[in-house]
Design a protein around this nucleic acid. Structure first.
Lengths: 330, 330
DNA sequence: CTGAAAGCGCTAACAC
DNA sequence: GTGTTAGCGCTTTCAG
């Protein structure tokens, strides 16, 4: 309540009867000080409940530590786990994390980047929504950035931590093919072109027909995902399996299937990217291509923290987890 | 890459051939400036891609804006939605958010509080894990704090945004009682004593027996929740319904029931606190007591931002959503 | 209407 | 070893 002045280094210096520099040295462990002085300073600091101000320090050192985290939607289990990984690493490194959600909107992303620059954050981890341009200001400001989940076209020089989409998609398609499926649909999010390409490629490699109409894209919202899934299931009764590009799409597919009375896996097999807790609770339990989301976040944080010159990106493996949502072609 | 010096207000001043004070005035909209000067300053700022440093500003103004957010686990859908609400409000107010996860560990909470103080954050929203003591430093530092989801004993003066536990629990118990259940168990998280009390009270009010052995507590981890649920279901075959105090507990109950071949709702009815997306995907779809998590976050942010003297807390309503996990007593 | 100057809290030279 | 001092980038009197 009381608007009392913050305790500063000067207060401690006076209380300990030394100069401010000495206090700074003792508290930051830099330089040397006689045991006696050290003791006095520590005691004074403790007594006054002194907390050095990061503001002052950062201003003086012209750097901030602190890492910015930009994700599309904290409510999406995948991004929440990613964020969790980042936090785990950052917190153990003692770095504060400034978080922002972009809603996959390039404009909001740009604003958030701007605000991170103002705050003098010097490293950022982002699941990018915009294209290379949005990131111009960040680089000009000298930010260290690492992309997560997806790279940005035209910024191949920026390290990115991603999952092995090609291999993940191939695994899924091969699994489906082995069950006899030929007409498989891909429910993708806008921006997952990498996976779409991988899908075509995998289908082709197995001699399966690629029907572009079976590749449906949705925006990253529940409504859009549901509409896409329902449309697909409703109009294309010839399809026999669907691969969902993310957990939101998978959820939508399950719901739409129930609504349209399409039985999984009897009528259509369903396999989804990203393993989430509910995949096991769902009925039937969902077969998934798991991605190490939390690990992805942790690695990204490590990368952005090390920030060595020539940091290379990382590609993380996926894993097929077979549960009960895929069956032989009907 | 290039470690170029950040563009400062001085650079802009020189470029526009005015004093730094004028630049400050123009850019912050304070004070007045002749249209011509204004123009020049704006142009120079734009040309140099100038971003005022929040560090300098905050240091000078001795305040930081910026709000800290402390939650137990960002991976838990409830807290993720809560965080989402906070972010929605904070971002629209242009306030940066510093986030930390406590893992419900008072010690980590204390550390995070300390780091928020160092960063000169001046407002914090927290789902508290520790007791009143942890918060001493925060108040002494003059932080404005608002608690979310749960209040802290001994800090009743701090505004809190919570759900109406008593009414939520009562609704659940009454619903169960109306279905004929008498032996209902409560699966709670440590720290949910408020709900436990409400449970006893509601049971008593309806003339149902309160068996303390049917009140089981778990820590906030999947493992602990599962152990608690499995233990309950395994040893107490006389129970006929269970109320789960949170989504992690509910998840555990579903899984344990399947494992032990207990049919829901035929063998036991299940009702869970907190509505999550998977409640609908689960089989059977879960009947829940919904809590407005995102709203809770938003309101907490509003509160901490207004920070009027004598801010009062808020109690949010719950809602019973009937799906398919409760049936008549067997 | 505008500029000069005094710090905000801190660290890093630089003296002693 | 330790104190003095000069800023980091910014806002805000205070003069002009």
């Amino acid at each position: 309540m009381s608007e009392q002045r913050r305790t500063t280094i000067k207060d401690v210096a006076e209380a300990a009867d030394v100069g401010v520099a000495t206090v700074s040295r003792v508290l930051s462990g830099t330089g040397s000080a006689s045991p006696a002085t050290r003791e006095r300073v520590l005691a004074a600091a403790a007594r006054l409940d002194y907390r050095p101000s990061a503001l002052g320090r950062n201003l003086r050192r012209r750097r901030t530590g602190g890492i910015g985290l930009l994700i599309p939607d904290i409510t999406d289990s995948f991004y929440a786990r990613l964020a969790d990984g980042v936090l785990a690493c950052a917190q153990s490194a003692g770095e504060p994390v400034m978080i922002g959600t972009t809603g996959d909107d390039p404009e909001r992303e740009a604003e958030l980047i701007g605000s991170l620059i103002e705050e003098s954050v010097e490293r950022v981890i982002a699941v990018p929504s915009g294209d290379g341009e949005m990131w111009g200001p960040a680089f000009r400001a000298g930010l260290g950035v690492v992309f997560a989940e997806r790279p940005v076209r035209g910024r191949e020089d920026v390290p990115a931590v991603v999952t092995d989409d090609r291999s993940g998609v191939r695994t899924a398609v091969e699994y489906l093919a082995a069950l006899g499926h030929r007409r498989v649909a891909f429910l993708a999010r806008h921006g997952q072109e990498q996976r779409v390409r991988a899908f075509r490629e995998a289908m082709g490699a197995l001699g399966l027909p690629v029907d572009e109409e079976l590749i449906v894209r949705a925006r990253a919202t529940r409504d859009s995902a549901y509409a896409a899934a329902a449309g697909l299931l409703h109009h294309r009764s010839d399809l026999t399996a669907v691969l969902a590009g993310g957990n939101l799409l998978g959820e939508a597919a399950v719901l739409a299937a129930r609504e349209l009375d399409v039985r999984v896996p009897r009528d259509v097999s369903l396999i989804m990217f990203d393993d989430v807790p509910w995949a096991e609770l769902c009925w039937p339990p969902l077969t998934v291509i798991a991605q190490p989301a939390q690990d992805m976040g942790y690695r990204a944080a490590e990368l952005v923290l090390r920030q060595g010159r020539r940091t290379r990106g990382v590609v993380l493996p996926t894993e097929l987890i077979v549960r009960g949502s895929c069956g032989p072609r009907r």
